[in-house]
Amino acid sequence: MKLYSVMLFFAATLGYFLSFLCYLFYATFGTKHPNNGPVLGIVANAAPARAGIDWGRWATALAWMAVALATSGVIARAIELGDASNWIRRVFLPATSTYETFTFLAWIIPLAYLLFERRYQIKQVGLFAIGIAFILLGAAASPVFAPSEVRPVVPSLDSIWLVIHVLFMLTGIACFTTGFGATALFLRQHYNKAEKIPQARLEELMYRCITIGFVFYFIGGFVFGPIWAENAWGRYWGFDPKEMGMAIAALTYAAYLHLRIVMGWRDVRVAWLAAVAYALVLFAWLGVNYFLGGLHSFV
């Protein structure tokens, strides 16, 4: 069966790859970065003033193009999913199988990153975010690991809460991913003792990403998840491995936020904590399904 979504995602894969190369050139050759200074000047969109090719601008433009392709891919997939389910379901979020979740994240992670980029202009982080999107689409292209076949929605996923809960969780993960890009760069610069980008700005990007991500992840996991679970399984919280994985990750980020805000920690210690929290998010998202199982194993 010919699926338009699959072709669109192939095109997006190529776009992310080219964008990734530009981010790589930017990170390697583009030493100058816009120094925004304190407040008032921060909404500076000015690209670094330097001679030669402005790799950063190319990278961003290509990333937006690839995101546009991925957007249409996600929409096409939603339509295909609806078609396969005889259109008797309410709303379709194309996140019901490994293939769909991976492609969906390959849309929302770069999108979240690009929105943060507009404000913070730290394009080195793009190397990570766009790279992740490329890897996700690459993994989704494997017919063994993530078959792209469209399957109708199973009864347990037939709910409006599929859209709300999953959208919130994945948006949270997308913000955390950008945050982790900043964390990794922060740690790298810390141990290499080479400060190409002011550590304070990286730290702020990390903190902002985590705050926004935390809001989505926390509400998605501790409010919308329980409401759905109550509706479907008759209990809010069942200490299911997936639920606990999410709770652990969220609590670790909560610890990070308290250390950052209340105790005022802004150094390598909280950066490590953020890195651990991100690892826990990844485990809750993927690890639980592959190693532990439980009620959330739909793939």
Binding site: G238, F239, P241, M244, G245, A247, I248, L251, T252, A254, A255, H258, L259, V262, M263, V288, L292
Partner: peptide
């Protein structure tokens, strides 16, 4: 104290990890 909160959160994370890896009798 926030330190207490951090310690307790760490403990909960630790115990929950056990509960995730060891199947529960429920």
């Amino acid at each position: 104290s926030v330190r207490l909160a951090i310690v307790l959160i760490s403990l909960i994370v630790l115990i929950s990890l056990i509960g995730m890896f060891v199947p529960q009798r429920d």
